[in-house]
Structure formats: C-alpha cells, structure tokens
Design a protein around this nucleic acid. Sequence first.
RNA 1: GCCCGGGUGGUGAAAUGGUAGACACGAGGGACUUAAAAUCCCUUGGUCCGUAAGGGCUGUGUGGGUUCGAGUCCCACCCCGGGCACCA
Length: 1217
Amino acid sequence: MQYDPKDIEQKWREKWQNDKTYRVLNDASKPKYYVLDMFPYPSGAGLHVGHPLGYIASDIVARFKRHQGFNVLHPMGYDSFGLPAEQYAIQTGQHPAKTTEENAARYRQQLDAIGFSFDWDREVRTSDPSFYKWTQWIFIQLFESWFDHEAQRARPIAELIARFEEQGWHPSDACALTGDVEEELGAFAATEWNAFDERTKQRILQHFRLAYLSEAWVNWCPALGTVLANDEVKDGVSERGGHPVERKRMPQWSMRITAYAQRLIDGLDTLDWSDSIKEAQRNWIGRSEGALVRFKLKNKDLTPGPSPEERGVSASDSRFRETTNGFLWTKLIERAKHMRSNPTEAEELLWQTIRGHSTGGRIRRQHIIDKFIVDFVSIPKQLVIEVDGDIHDLQQEEDALRTLHLGERGFKVIRFRNEEVLRDPEAVRLRIIAELDARPDIAKDDERADEEHSPLSTEEELGVRSHFSPLPGRGVGGEVEVFTTRPDTLFGVTFVTLAPEHELVELITPAERRDEVMAYVTMAKNRSERDRMADVKKVSGVFTGAYCIHPFTGKEVPVWVGDYVLGGYGTGAVMAVPGGDQRDWNFASHFGLPIIAVTEGADISKEADERKDAIICSEGFLKGLAVPEAITRAIDELVKLGAGERRINYRLRDAAFGRQRYWGEPIPIYYKDGVPYALPESELPLKLPDVDKFLPTEDGEPPLARAANWNYQGHPLETTTMPGWAGSSWYFLRYMDPQNEGRFASPEAIDYWQQIDLYVGGSEHATGHLLYFRFWTKFLKDRGYINFDEPAKKLVNQGMIVGVSKYFQEVRVDPSIKAVWDKKPKQLHIRRNGTLLKSIEIPVPTAQDVTGHHVFCSYGCRLDLDFFDPATGDYIKTVRAEDRADSDFVSEAVIDSKSEYVIRPLDGWLRAEPVYRPIVITDRAVDAYWHYEPGKRQWLSFNDEPLENQELAFWTLRPEIEKMSKSKMNVVTPDEKLRKPIGLFAKHIGYYFNEADSIVRIPGIVEKYGADTLRLYEMFLGPLEQSKPWDTNGIEGTFRFLRKFWNLFHGVGDAFGVTDDAPTKPELKVLHATLKKVTEDIEKMSFNTSVAQFMIAVNELGSLKCTKRAVLEPLVVALAPFAPHIAEELWQKLGHNTSITTAVWPKWDAQYLVEDNFSYPISFNGKTRLQLEFPIALDAKSVEAAVLANPEVQQRLEGKAPKKVIVVPKRIVNIVV
RNA sequence: GCCCGGGUGGUGAAAUGGUAGACACGAGGGACUUAAAAUCCCUUGGUCCGUAAGGGCUGUGUGGGUUCGAGUCCCACCCCGGGCACCA
C-alpha cells in the first residue's frame, strides 16, 4: 500500500476538528506548559514558509510536552489591527474589518493545512471589541498610574494626588518622583497645589501618568491626506508622488516606558533569552552611570533668569505656559520691547498698513515665538511675516534656518524686502491677505494675551488643541550642564563643547564672534545625519568666545561648539577631557587646545587614555585614586559645591502611543476643558466608529474625527488610535481565559498558566514588541493584576527563511558602455564614453505577461513597484510590498491585469531605468542574464553564448542569498566576469519567486507532498535559530523518508504487516538510540538532528527488515510531534481507538544501548591509523597492552618504544612516538 | 567605531577537547523496466601513488598558541550577518 498523504491528512484534520482533539482546559490537576508563537498579522499574501517555521517548532514542543503529561496551552490568534488593511480600505473603500476577516479566514485555512495543534476555541484577535475592550482597560490603568521611583513600581495616581495635597512637590523630590528622567520640574507647596484649579492639576498630573499626552511633530502631506513616516519623506516631499510635506504639531499620547528603564535592564538577567536579544535591549535602553556637572558661565551679563517665584508669577495657569527657559525669556522680552519701540521705516509702514483688522484678522508685531522674535505674525493662521533689511549671505543662512525652525513649529514664513514694502505697502497687504486666506485656522488666538502685556506666544496658544509644556524649570541660565560618565577626569577638562543645536550657543556668543559662530552652527545643523556618519573622522567646531568656570579649580574654561556633540543625548553638552576621551582628544588636537593627562602612565601625545582600570594623576584631591573611587569622590565634591550630582542617564525615550489612523484601538479618553479624562470602565469597549472615508480630515485630524457623535456626554473623544504594539503587549494573558467578559483574564487562569514557558518568534521584534510586552507585564504586576513580572521565561528566535533573491545589477562587458533608459520615448540609449551608439525601443511589458503573478518581499525588506501609464510612460502609482515579518507588515503586490509596470528600486534615484520583466526571474538558472532582443520582441538569455560575445549586457538579476541590509551600499560583490558599476541596488532588493521556488506555495507543497513532509522538511533545513535560504530541492528527501517509514508497516502487498514477534537486540538498539536522541534533541530544540535520527532509524530498520510492533509502535509516538497525520493513521492501524496525542511518550532504556565491544580508533600522534575492537569492560591498562601487542601497531612503531600511550576508555587510543 | 552572532564539501548541514563531513539534496555510475515514474545498489572534500586490494599527503576563514590530541579552548587578524551608532 502506497503512502498517500492526501487522504490521510484530510481524514485526520477533519477528525481533530470534530473531536476537538486540541482543546485545552484550565486543568489544575496537571502540570502546565505554555508555548506561544508570536501571532501573525493576517496579510492578504497568506502564509509563506517563514511563518510556519516557528509554528512547527513550537507545535513539536507542544505535542511533545503533551505526550509527557503536561497540560499544554498552545494557542494562536491574529494581530489584526494594522496598516495594510487600512491602506487597502483607503484605496477600495472596503472596511478593514472585512478584509481582515477574509485574510484571517485564509490564514486559518493554511494553518489548518499544516496540522497545528492549536486550540482554536482560544483564538484572539486584537481588532475584536471583546479583546480591545481590555487593551483599552489596561490603557486606562496606565493613565491612572504613576511611577514611584523610590519604590521602583507603579502606583495609583490617587496616591500621588494625596501626596501633593499633603506635602506638595519639592525639588528634592525630583529623583523620587521622576527618577530624574524628566526635565527638572518646578516646585509647589501643598497649599499651592490645593489652590490650583482642576485644569492646572490635571495638566501637572500629565507629567506623572504612565500614559500621558504630549505633543509631537508629524509629517503631514496634504496632497496624500495622510501622515507620513520619516522614511517616507525625502527632501521635503513625499517619497511617493513627490508631494510637499509639512511639519505639523499634533497631540500625541505616549507611554512612560522610561520609568521602567532600570527594571527592564535588571529583568534581563532572569531570562532564558538569547544573548543577542538581551544585548539589543540593553543597548536600546542605553543606561550610563555618571554625574551631572554644572559649569557656571563667566560672563557677568549672563546671570540666571528669574525663577517663577522670582518673577512673581502667581500659581495660576500662566506659569505653565512658558516654552523657553527663564534665562531666554527675560532676554527676549527685553529685546522685543526694544525692537518694538525702534522699528525700521519699512516695519513701521507695514505695521500701520496691516494693524487692527485690516487684513481680516489680527496681526501681532515683534512677537516671540519659541526663541525667535518675528516681525509680524497671525497666530490663528500661523503665518509669520518678515521684513528683511540688507541681506548678506550670512543673514540669508540664518533666515533660512529660522524659517526652518518656525516651520517645524507649524508656522509658514513669508518675507518681503524693505523696498517692496516702502514702494507699495498696499500690494504687500493684499499678498498677506491672500496668504492668510490660503491657510486654515490652525490655532486659536487667545484674545486675553494682549500684546502689550504679553509678547510671548506660548505653545499653549499655538497648539492645535490643548497640550502640556514642561513645568517651569530652575532654568539653565548662567550655567552649562553636562552629563559625564567619568567625573573622575574632571581635572582634565580643558574646554566644554556644546552641540550646534544647543540653545545657549547664540546667547553666550559675544557680538564680535557672532558671525563666525552662527555660520558654523548653520553649516553643522544642515549637515545631514548621513554626512555626519560618512566622515566620522572629520573634526569641526568653533570657539564661542565665552568661558565658563571649572567647579573645582575655578579656572576659566573655553566653551566651544562642535558637531561631535549630539543635541539629543544627555544635556547636549560635554565637558571635554582630551586626555581621557578620544573624541575630545581629536577635537583638541585639531584646534590646538591643551591636553592634560588624567591617568598615570598615559601617553597623551598620540591618543587619549580611556582605560577604566587606571590611577588618576591629576593634581588635587583625586590624585592617586583608582577610577571607581575617584568617581565617587568627585561626585561627593560636586555635591558639596552644589555643582553637580550623581545621575543615571538612559537613551531610551518614551514610546509614542498615538497613531493618526483608523484601524487601531480607539483610545478611551475624552476631553473636558481641553484636559483628558479616562472613560469610565462601564463605557468599554469604546468601539471603532463608522466613518465615511478612512482618510484624515482636510485639516489633518485623524480619521476618527469624521465619525458622527464622536463624543462622550458631549465631550469630544480622542481621535487617535493605538499603535500595533498595544494589543500584542498583553495578548498572551488573554489566551489563558479568552472568553472572560468581566476581566482581561481571571486570577485563577493567570495563576494556573503563569508565564509563557516557551515563546517563539522573530528576532526583529527585539526592541519593539519584546520591550513593550515586558513593560506592560511589569506594570500589571505592580498594580497587582498578575503575579509575575516577566512575560516569557524562555524565548527562541527562529531564523529567517530567506529567499534566494535576485539583485538588480548592471552588467557590462565593456565598462565604457552605458545603457540609459529614457522613459519618455521608452527607449534605451546605449552610449560608449558618452557617444550614442544606438537607441533601442523597448515596450513596456504587457498585462498578459504579468497578470496574476505575486511579487513578494521576504522578511525585513520591501519592494516598490511603480506603475506607469504604458501610453505616455508617466508615473501612475506605487504599490509597495513590504514585510517586516510576522506581526508588523506582510504585504504583497499582486499584479493586476489592468496595470502595466516597471520595477524601480526604492530610492527613486533610478527613475530612468530599463524596463524589467520580473517574470524572467522565474528562470532558475543561476547564470541567466537577460537582454532585450528588439527584433524578436523578447528578452533572451545569454546562457547559450559566452558573455563576451554579446554586444551589450545591461540589467540583470543576480541570485543571492537575501541580506537584510538597511544601510549598506556595498553588499553586491559581483562574480569575476561581471563589472560592478553601481552597488546601490543592494539597498533595494526585490524578491521574486516563481511557482516552483515560491516561498508562499504552502498549499502547493502540501498538495504535492503533504503537510507532514512540509513540517519535517522545514525542521530538517537546519538549526531553528539560524536563518537559511529556502529552496525546495531537498524536500524529496523528507518525503522519501516518510514513505520508507510507512513501508515499514506495510508488507510487499497492501497488507498491514506489523507482527507481534519479539524484537531482536539490534532492533531494540535502533529504537532506543532513536528515542534517546529525539527526546534530548526536542528538549534542546535541535529538530534538524532529530529528523536525521529518524532517517537513520528507518534506514537501519529497513535493512533489518523489522516489522515488529514492539519497535515500531514507540517510534510512531516519537514521530507524532513531527508528523502528526501519518502518526495518527499508523496508530489507528496499530489498533488504537484514541488519538495518538494521548499516548505516553516512550522512554528510552540505556540497557539496550550498552555495547559489548568498542572499536577503538588507534591514532599515532593524533592521527587515526587503524581500528581495534576490545570489550567495553576492558580497563585502560589492558587495552594499552593489547594495542601494543597488535602486530600492525608494532609494525607502525618500527620496533621503537612509544613515548606515551593515552587510553581514553570507550573513546580513543593515542600513541605518541 | 561599539555590542552580539557566524565562517566546515557543489548545496542544506552533523560533530560532550577524542575517527571531520552524520543525515539529506545534487551529481556520477549501475540494477529493475518496452519506456517513464517509483524503488534499490555503488561512488562522491581535495590531491597523489597503485592494474587492483589498498595506501600517502592535505583539509573546518587566516596566522600563532595551549594540548598526547583542536572545527571545538586561548590570542591576533580577515570576511559575512544582525543590532546600535560621534551615547559623553
């Protein structure tokens, strides 16, 4: 009887489903085991072979544990909120819920086809209201909590309020309450707190809540009607379509994950996760210990700005409106007043023309916005009008910078020249009106803020909606704050360097140095990050002309600006110790600044001494101390002087939690007086409302703003939605008790299932999902909802299955020949050294060529298909195929019959390119090069002829193992005969797979070989954690194995031929050796070697012609986790009525593995020469004697006595001559 | 630059410091067959000697080291992949 997987597998799939074989009960009488896979995003592309790799592995473990008597929770669900469905909805108008449902159904079908032992009764979907009710509920708990840094745990916000009511807030509380992670906050007394109005209190609390509202800049593209991610914006225009993009400020929910930074680091030590993931998380959190040091500025003018108290600001709203520091504030007010009373002629003329309501709206003059004083501004329209005087180059640069800066704050800047205003002020007025009319009302003008009294435009007034600026700080006026990890090197400080972005730069720079410094700042700021990366070695900077005072020595220290200091890290300033820090050393040597040795034995003439095991040699109280002691001592001294304190700095930033999107969990928040409040629990779930379009509104409000009656008791509801990681941060808990309507999961269920014992998923989630997921778990623990602090004990990252990808590559036999595709006439121009040789007309591929072909991206990569109008060659649209694995993005571009297309790498630099026919890639030949033959109107392979004979070879697709390279431009290494004119393609890899090689043809593989073969094959490919190329060449081998296994049970005819005869010793040995290896390997998750062992067993039993039940039956059980269908069928044929899943795992017995003899490899000087068999029992001495007595050994010794003989029992004999 | 992985036949890969290449694919040869499919058998790291049986040398990225013995441990370097990046 032939092994025919088709019928068998169909039969068992149905039976499992009908019998609910894989249902899991919360059965406390059995030990539990929780195996979880990272759930997938149900994309339209369906599963590809990368998905099931991890699922198969976890399924094997789950089944194995079940055989061992564990109650195993092994659920599956969908991370079903997400962008692709929304994108599709925008294009087609179809509700994302519908496509999501369809896609999930398809996934289910495919997953079922592979025979997973999931308990589908426990399926969860993050987009299901009964699920996201609890995501919202957890959000509210976060909103209603703050982090007590002293106790290192989250507590209810009510306890913080109680504390404020009793003791207020003191600067000395900063560490306890904010962990010094926040900006320094201003203080208030209990009486003050109690006197605050509700609104003020709420806004202060925002600084403590774990889910809080702040504001952030987004890239708003009016033409596309959407917010774009940073990497979708290139040079100020959208990557797709090239539409202008504006920076726009939007209210933004955030998660205070920074509060948990320390615990997230500490917890890693308790986890059985891979080192690389742990390292990635540590890196991401980026803890550094050190000190905050304050250097007083020398310049007398630069006295600190008044504190809020000193300024006499009462405890009212206004104290929270300030956006700049106190120091800047006083300076700017002074200057604004001065400028207002001394206008230029043109300014005054224009002011008279546009003042009052003569433009239809109110215009203010000499107004402070952020740190600039602008000439005129309309607050509601966020339009700045500037009148420029004489313009020289430097001024132009500065103006450009200022325009950019204001633009970032949502302002448009228009400029008029002095002459324009003086010549025809009315024309200028009309243009201003036109500009004003063209802009929507963006901000409310606060009429209370009368210009004469308050020239300050606060962010409060400018915000789209209410938001919260930092509490007033103590101000940085008069001092430079630096963070250092090496306060022990303080005596080696010879200068201080500020980041170009540092706001002190323009304030401390004396007038005579202003031009030079600002020119540098402009240049440095404009240097793109890529430029900075490109030449790390290049040192640049400028002296500000200012000095500060060394806190220990009292000496003057020059203040420089250097672009090696980053604005976004620490305080944006460093104390430079060229003797102890290489970057400082580079800077100092470049500019001839003094370099002082800080450590004994350092040779500072060539490089800095960064050793941390050195002795400090600086004169003073640190001399002779080792680094760690010196650090402690230095901090003590700083504290005594009030010049600094101990500080731990983290790189981790709070996580943005709001998305301007439709297809996500609504945030359960409403606004009263512009202040956010949590919805009562009884209102949950707050369901996604219906909207007419899934697009943002014209003025940039998120899609939910389109919903009718989107309010709670008349108060507007939040319109942003949660990000993809919200649901995935706690879904593992819901599986424990998925139908619970009164709680996210019952305490009993949580108590029983506890942590995930084994979590399997891709490593690309290292710093995203896996961090948030730990964060939420810790939070829920803190608030007493669960009793463990880490979600997953063991984590295994399955490697990517990578496709053999095809690189675009230009191939030229003669490097002087260049082929350039001209889009317009659709011609390929071939030039040699610039001289046109000929032009070839190339038709755009026709629809028939490509219809129905899927274009896929493998993990972590993406591919853009540009669609061009075949008639004109004009660009129509881009379809992106993107895959960031599992739950992030999996998408596809299916070529539809209406579209014609060419392929273009992402960057857009290749706008002129020859037309590809991706279909040619279906050729499997490694060395298939293609060129276009106009006469035959088809692309031809060069295979028949040597490449050298071709007149021209241009674009080709070169197979290569996929590399997830995001930034490397140099990965393409062409083979010898190819020239490599460009490496850029490597950055943008397109992946194509034909039917035979397809990564996605799971149904196809299952159809042809069966699910058991697929399962075995994926496991057989190699170690689970290693990434490996997918090719189906080897699949025959595993299929043959299953057939041989099947044949062991069946005689020559169709009969089931298992006998009850007693097994022989060799048969038992094969059995037990296999059981041993397989049992141990599953525990090690080394599946490829277990499959190999099964193959060995089958081959050996085949040779032994073993048909004995006593041998075959245990083997069936052992194979069941790997190949459940065939195992069930054989199990039934062996006469069992119950599912094999209930069978007890067969134990191996060492007695059958005992050998009587061992064949010793006899080596001479480590080189094996012959084998000699001796009884196992023979001791080392006797073995040695027997070996030396052997004639062949004697012959090799040539009569000489061996120097030494090493006998390792049951291993080896080594004779040293 | 820093931090993690990794580098073994034509390919996927095995190998508690103890016979490198298990197992599988592919390839070559053979058997069966009218033929194909399927199945089975043999060979298969390189190289040299030998008619053959057999034997020698060499071989796990490179160079050193430890050891009776190194793919495995140590040092230095090269290359590949991933993460972070002028992180103070």
